Simulated scan of single mutants.
Amino acid sequence: MKIAIIGAAGKAGTHLLREAILRKLDVTAILKNAATLSVENVSNIEKNLFDLTKGDLVPFDIIINAFAPLPGEEHLHISAGHHLISLLGGTSKKLFVIGCSGCLFVDEKKTKRLMEEEEYPKDLLASSKAQLQNLRNFEKSSIHWTYVIPSAMFDSEGPRTGHYMKGEEHMLVNSQFNSYISYADFAVAMLDEIEKSEHHNTCFTVVSENVTAAS
């Protein structure tokens, strides 16, 4: 199994890359500038996501989209999704996408998403709306995909515990009643899914204990 990580120099991408290397998986980083890669001795393709071709992705079985647009460019989530759908159509390759907690439902009847709550941060709203549209586009597509949604508190500094709980489209909380996941444990969950392949053309979410807050 060969894995490509788009946006491998970003926060989420770096954790995914390190987790893949830890598991001794065959992984390649795809990024705009190879000089920004913080992980040494890893294969890489220095190319903008939007310049990728079908030929670039031929060697890979799994493509992870960890691309994170800059503030004000949230619409690029949708553009990136369209581009990857066009590249992967008619292939057996599988796309894994990092979603946004704003897409999670907060009620059992699935009538309200987290982004619709009054206290949801306004600076995250544009990204959440774009990511929801991205998800809807995947649902209409013919490609193979899995959309992995982090908890509301997505902690780039949190440790790797290797433990988490999974759900589907509803926001989960831990024993502290917090919707929390570290980037490191999110990477564990995504790589576990890649190896086990339990979610096909659907989304799931993960939550873990905040061991830093508990100590």
Score class of each variant (00 low, 15 high):
Asn41Leu: 10
Asp107Trp: 11
Ala68Tyr: 08
Asp61Tyr: 10
Gly102Tyr: 03
Lys47Asp: 00
Asp26Tyr: 11
Asn134Pro: 00
Pro69Phe: 02
Phe60His: 04
Leu52Pro: 00
Ser101Gln: 02
Glu73Cys: 06
Gly102Asp: 07
Leu104Glu: 00
Tyr120Val: 00
Lys24Met: 05
Glu46Phe: 05
Lys122Cys: 10
Glu19Val: 03
Leu31Tyr: 03
Leu22Val: 07
Thr111Gln: 15
Lys129Leu: 14
Ala66Ser: 09
Glu73Tyr: 08
Phe50Ile: 06
Phe60Ser: 05
Ala35Thr: 12
Lys122His: 15
Ala126Thr: 14
Ile78Glu: 12
Ser128Asn: 04
Ser92Asp: 15
Ile21Ser: 03
Phe67Val: 02
Glu118Gly: 13
Gly55Lys: 11
Thr28Cys: 11
Leu114Ile: 12
Ala34Trp: 08
Lys32Phe: 11
Glu119Trp: 14
Leu25Pro: 06
Leu25Glu: 15
Ser86Asn: 08
Glu108Met: 09
Val39Asp: 10
Lys93Thr: 10
Asp123Ser: 15
Ala35Trp: 09
Asn41Gly: 07
Asn134Met: 13
Ser38Ile: 07
Leu70Ser: 14
Pro71Phe: 07
Arg23Gly: 04
Arg113Met: 14
Asp56Ala: 03
Gly72Pro: 04
His75Asn: 11
Leu104Asn: 00
Arg113Gln: 13
Ala35Asp: 14
Thr28Asn: 09
Phe105Ala: 02
Gly72Cys: 07
Lys93Gln: 13
Phe50Pro: 03
Ile63Trp: 09
Ile64Phe: 05
Leu88Cys: 03
Ser92Lys: 14
Leu84Ser: 02
Pro69Tyr: 03
Leu49Met: 08
Ile30Asn: 07
Glu118Cys: 12
Lys93Val: 09
Ser43His: 14
Val97Met: 04
Ala126Ser: 12
Asp61Cys: 03
Ala66Val: 01
Lys93Ile: 07
Ile63Asp: 04
Leu124Gln: 13
His75Trp: 12
Leu49Asp: 01
Lys129Val: 15
Ser101His: 06
Leu124Glu: 13
Glu74Met: 04
Leu84Phe: 02
Asn48Trp: 02
Leu125Phe: 15
Lys93Leu: 03
Ser101Ala: 15
Ile45Ser: 02
Val58Gly: 01
Asn48Arg: 03
Ala130His: 09
Ile63Ala: 01
Lys32Gly: 03
Thr53Ile: 02
Gly99Ser: 05
Cys103Tyr: 11
Ala34His: 05
Val97Ser: 02
Asn44Tyr: 15
Ile45His: 08
Val42Ala: 11
Ser127Tyr: 06
Lys109Val: 11
Ile63Leu: 10
Ile78Gly: 11
Asp61Ala: 09
Asp123Thr: 15
Gly102Thr: 08
Leu22His: 13
Asn134Asp: 14
Pro59Asp: 11
Ala20Gln: 06
Thr111Pro: 09
Asn33Lys: 11
His77Ser: 10
Asn65Glu: 06
Lys47Ser: 02
Glu74Gln: 06
Asp51Thr: 08
Arg23Val: 05
Asn65Gly: 09
Lys54Thr: 00
Ser127Pro: 00
His83Asp: 04
Leu124Lys: 13
Phe96Ile: 14
Asn65Arg: 12
Ala20Ser: 13
Gly90Ile: 04
